[in-house]
Amino acid sequence: MSLGSLYFYSDVLHSSQKVNILLPEPRTIYPHKKEDMEILYLLHGMQGSAHSWVSSSSVERYLYESGRNMAIIIPTMKSNFYTDHKIGDAYFTYIGEELPKIIRSYLHVSHQRDQTYVAGLSMGGYGAIKLALSYPEQFKMAASFSGALGMENTMERAASENEHYLFNFIYGSLKEYINSPNDTTYLLNKCAKNSRMLPKLYISCGTADNLFSANKQFAEKALNLGYQVKFHVEKEMGHAWRFWDLEVEKLLRTLL
């Protein structure tokens, strides 16, 4: 189980950033000839960091057990929603454009779509879907675990409870969110219309999770638009690390 931490300066975010990187073990790769590693971007949820996936799940062990020649890139996003803030920094450009360039310059990772994936939990599920639909020619598959795929509902509720401050500076108003490049439903439609290649979508959610119906609706929309979708329902599971740990294990062993 190999783990590295890369600290570097991001020009896009004009600040020091960190990503954790999981790498294949010597004993996984030595029997085979040298070849570029597959690459999975693994995104955390609100308030998290590059530490979240590593400390709260066994993803490091799951990578090793899967026997894959793969690098897993785990960025820190805090609560920045993988979005170019309306007032603030360009977190989507960072994650979609700058970070892949940096990773490719340092590591022997594949540039091929067939070997490039993105996955995430909650806010990170939203981020994963957003990335893959914005760059469909770059990602073979996106996986969303308990993804924040009904952001318009979340924003509406927050506004009604007078707690919209978070979304104000990230997205602006609900009106500004809808049909913008931040709107995952908009992206779903746009990508289906314009792209030759559609990323495969894996969407999973527990039935005890408040986001369940938004996830179900999103999966159904995607299916109707012609995407290859696997929608997984976990009975009696909530918005919890127990679920995300199970999901990432399944992802590495069977889904990619």
Binding site: L23, P26, I29, Y30, A71, S105, Y106, L107, H108
Partner: peptide
């Protein structure tokens, strides 16, 4: 050296 040459450019 073998390991590093596989991971890093």
């Amino acid at each position: 050296p073998e390991l590093l040459s596989r991971w890093i450019r």
